[in-house]
Nucleic acid binder design. Structure first.
Lengths: 234, 234
DNA sequence: CGCGTATTTGATAAGGCTCAAACGGTGTGG
DNA sequence: CCACACCGTTTGAGCCTTATCAAATACGCG
């Protein structure tokens, strides 16, 4: 499972905001110390409750952050894609993971050990600040999600999730959302039962807001979706 | 409204985790540059959407972070008390405030300008790391709240909110929760209608789980509340 | 092609929201 | 000191949204 990807960090195509603050020398350190892995679809990269010994940088692929609720049901609290750091929250707060991180498709990662990460934080202010900004930004997003769950109904939340997916992953040449999720995963993002989600998706289809063929969803009228979601900002 | 509190930071009774990493000299800087204010109950310290030019440190008092939802209803996403930093998320992420910060009682604060904060971040690794840990910890708490809202019913969430208040603010000598909130504020924390909240509170009262006289709530059986809330960890 | 899983549809029930009205405490002015 | 008005709280009734259970259908994989 563990292997070295051919690319050196400085040639890496993905652009992580934090790593852009590292010097050539520091990037060399990463390239030397990092371990690389490939995960197949559906694999658990990190398990809820464990304490990771470092962070992963996603080189290719997509992941979901999923928390197990008390009724044995999952809830997806965030998604990650190329360039995102995985598990940084837990490592920096020195807390155990509050969610499992599971791949949505084949995913290539580079592992950066905790010690190296903390070295950079101590020595490189730009890196440190960038990481902090990441955390604070994510905290803001979480706040939005909290209000949405507390105040919006399922229809509004679904519209918002669709727009969020579009903003984060974009669409391919045919206009389909660039991420494949099962109906259950959609339901776990929206916070509803799978059956309810399916009914609302077909409502949206009938209203001409989206097109959907099983795993392929195309947004036809994003502005109308935004109106449904009651978005003030997007 | 703005005045200097008599205490120098190094004598300040409140212990903010970040400030403990500052040197005597740096604390002097804070004491020199900070501005202090007193806010009466119900005053808005910072308004949602604005961009603060620094952070407040709470010297005395309690605040709520409240977001205005699309239906004109508030949702309380967090509470703050003595020693907490206000507005750090927005300042560090360089984003506008995602919530208004409103006092729950008379509150004394010290204002620390953005520039000074960033100086410390650049020069003092302990401070910087501590701030980062704060942000990452809060991010974890937000994640918990998201799962709770998505998966738990109102009764479970109310039990959890009561326990959270007890953990954060404790109880006075008579066993009453050390924070005064209206029924509407409780509802806005739980994410439900005021009427529903009132009904559930009186259910809890009938079941002997709590005592309540308007603004005074006493938890009688916290372990039973924890069972209702389905807490894995508390 | 056949099995297992994911998706879809239907029927029913419950949880929670909304509207309406009554009640209670508190502060103000006479 | 009392009467009144206002606001927060409480209770009731009906309805709507959403969850749950059950069953049918479609899809993907070996």
């Amino acid at each position: 499972m563990a292997y070295k990807v051919p690319t050196h960090c400085k040639d890496c195509s993905v652009n992580n905001a934090c790593f852009q603050h590292l010097t050539a020398e520091e990037l060399n350190e990463v390239a030397t110390e990092k371990g690389c892995s490939v995960f197949k679809k559906g694999q658990v990269i990190m398990a809820e409750g464990s304490k990771p010994s470092g962070v992963f940088c996603i080189n290719r692929g997509k992941v979901k952050y999923t928390r197990l609720g008390s009724e044995g049901r999952d809830h997806i609290i965030r998604l990650g894609k190329e360039g995102d750091l995985i598990g940084y929250r837990s490592v920096l707060a020195n807390e155990s993971l509050s969610a499992s991180i599971v791949t949505l498709e084949e995913t290539h990662t580079c592992f950066i050990p905790k010690s190296l990460l903390f070295d950079f934080i101590k020595e490189n202010n730009g890196f440190s600040l960038s990481l902090m900004q990441q955390a604070c930004h994510d905290l803001g997003e979480s706040g939005k999600m909290i209000t949405n769950l507390a105040q919006k109904n399922v229809r509004q939340r679904l519209a918002e999730v669709l727009l969020m997916l579009n903003a984060k992953f974009g669409a391919n040449e045919e206009g389909h959302l660039n991420v494949k999720l099962s109906r259950e995963e959609y339901a776990n993002m929206v916070g509803t039962a799978t059956e309810t989600l399916i009914r609302l998706l077909s409502d949206f289809k009938q209203e001409g807001l989206i097109e959907s063929k099983v795993k392929m969803i195309r947004l036809l009228q994003p502005n109308k979706l935004a109106a449904i979601a009651q978005l003030n900002d997007f």
